[in-house]
């Protein structure tokens, strides 16, 4: 297992996670649907997770994988809270479009 991971050069992991991270950022910036934005945030988190796991394996250090678990917990909590807020927003506005959420302006 370890060997098969190490057969793929570390560069590729970095490229992949960068790609995933950029997709996440673009999703957050461009999309207006709140659910998709949340998913893109998850994507960014997981891009980081992937990177951490890859480096951890290459370096033979478990600390990176511990960090991954932390991030997954935080991401789960964040998803729960985020989706909860989203449900409330949907009930009030009948929409999940985040560009409508500018009530605090002025």
């Amino acid at each position: 297992m370890l060997e098969s991971i190490r057969q793929i050069p570390i560069d590729y992991y970095v490229y992949l996670s960068t790609l995933l991270f950029v997709i996440g950022i673009l999703g957050v910036l461009i999309r207006r649907n709140a659910i998709i934005v949340l998913m893109c945030v998850e994507l960014m988190l997981n891009a980081v997770n992937l990177l951490l796991a890859a480096f951890s394996t290459y370096l033979g250090d478990a600390q990176g994988q511990i960090m991954v678990f932390f991030i997954m917990v935080v991401a789960a909590a964040e998803a729960a809270v985020g989706l909860g807020i989203l449900v409330m927003i949907y009930r009030n506005t009948k929409s999940t479009d985040i560009s409508l959420l500018d009530k605090l302006r002025n």
Binding site: V28, L29, I98, S99, L101, D102, K103, L104, R105
Partner: peptide
């Protein structure tokens, strides 16, 4: 800058 548009803030952050 304070236009209340979340995407705009996010863009600024990124």
């Amino acid at each position: 800058l304070q236009n209340g548009n979340i995407e705009y803030y996010l863009f600024g952050m990124v």
